[in-house]
Amino acid sequence: MESALALDIRHLAKLDQLHDGARGSLTWSSGASVSFTVTLQGDIGTLTLFYTAPDRDTGERKNVACAIPLSSLPLHYGGYRWYMHCPRTGRRAQILHKWNGLTQFCHRSTVHPKPTYASQRISGSDRIMAQRWAIRRKLGDTSSDLFGEPCKPKRMRWRTFEHYANRDAELAERESGYLRRLIGRLQGMR
């Protein structure tokens, strides 16, 4: 998911770009940019995106004009909430994504295999170690390792430090149990 460009309709609304005849451009931190126009007629409309994308077959960059239908629903206390509709499925969404290799922005459910976040691909022991390192970073502890207990920073209350140290001890116990089970499975494979 992190590698995809995310187009968020709420961001356009925050920039006050959801009105008839609005034109502008969006730029992502990766350097990708998209020009857009908005056409509205009451509570429906179209967001048209203009950008270049590589052709799947030839790899050459080609100009793409992607028309995304818009609709809005009234809110209980006044106003409207705008939604985009996926060009592939018509599914209503506030965020559409564009991955490398695809020419259109689409809902994430249309991509197969389903995209995942990097944190979803971390194994059990790696996740535990990441949590233990996060505790060390919160404490500002740059000198200890995961084999010992964390170091208490100056001016931190002992009660707060003990909370973090107890959480670290729980995680260390879970990690050692995980590793014991893994070693047991590996020995059983002989």
Score class of each variant (00 low, 15 high):
His163Leu: 14
Asp145Thr: 14
Tyr178Asp: 03
Gly101Tyr: 00
Pro150His: 12
Ser109Val: 10
Pro115Tyr: 02
Glu175Ile: 08
Ser119Thr: 09
Gln187Ala: 07
Lys114Leu: 11
Gln131Ser: 04
Leu182Gln: 12
Arg137Met: 02
Arg137Phe: 01
Met129Val: 09
Ala65Ser: 15
Asn100Arg: 10
Gln187Phe: 04
Ile135Gln: 05
Pro69Tyr: 06
Tyr178Thr: 13
Leu182Cys: 08
Ala93Val: 00
Tyr178Leu: 14
Arg157His: 12
Arg159Cys: 05
Phe105Met: 00
Leu70Glu: 03
His112Leu: 02
Ile183Val: 12
Gly78Arg: 01
Ala169Pro: 09
Ala165Val: 05
Ser72Tyr: 01
Leu186Asn: 02
Phe105Ala: 04
Ser125Met: 08
Gly101Ala: 00
His112Cys: 01
Thr142Asp: 09
Met129Lys: 12
Ser72Arg: 13
Leu70Val: 02
Met156Tyr: 06
Gly90Ile: 00
Ile95Ser: 06
Arg121Pro: 02
Ala130Trp: 04
Ser119Pro: 02
Arg180Ala: 14
Asp145Pro: 07
Met129Leu: 02
Leu186Trp: 08
Ala172Asn: 14
Ala130Pro: 11
Pro115Thr: 04
Arg88Cys: 01
Arg185Ile: 04
Ile183Leu: 14
Leu171Val: 08
Ile122Cys: 00
Leu182Ala: 13
His76Trp: 06
His107Lys: 01
Gly148Gln: 06
Trp158Val: 11
His112Ala: 04
Arg127Lys: 12
Arg127Thr: 07
Val111Thr: 06
Gly177Gln: 14
Gln104Val: 07
Arg92Glu: 07
Ser143Gln: 13
Gly101Leu: 01
Glu162Asp: 14
Arg174Asp: 03
Cys151Arg: 15
Gly148Arg: 11
Ile183Trp: 09
Lys152Trp: 11
Pro87Ser: 10
Pro69Ala: 14
Ser176Tyr: 11
Arg91Tyr: 08
Ile183Glu: 11
Pro153Leu: 03
Gln120His: 06
Arg132Thr: 00
Ala165Arg: 15
Leu102Ala: 03
Thr110Arg: 02
Lys98Gln: 09
Ala67Glu: 15
Ser123His: 04
Arg132Ala: 10
His107Tyr: 06
Arg174Phe: 07
Gln104Phe: 09
Trp133Glu: 13
Arg136Val: 08
Trp99Cys: 00
Thr110Asn: 03
Gly101Val: 07
Glu149Gln: 14
Leu70His: 03
Glu173Tyr: 10
Arg81Ser: 12
Trp99Ile: 05
Met84Asp: 09
Asp168Ala: 05
Gly177Asn: 15
Leu75Pro: 00
Gly101Gln: 07
Trp158Thr: 14
Ala165Cys: 13
Thr89Asn: 01
Ala65Val: 15
Gln131Cys: 01
Asp168Pro: 02
Pro150Ser: 04
Ser176His: 13
Tyr117Phe: 10
Ser123Asn: 15
Lys138Arg: 15
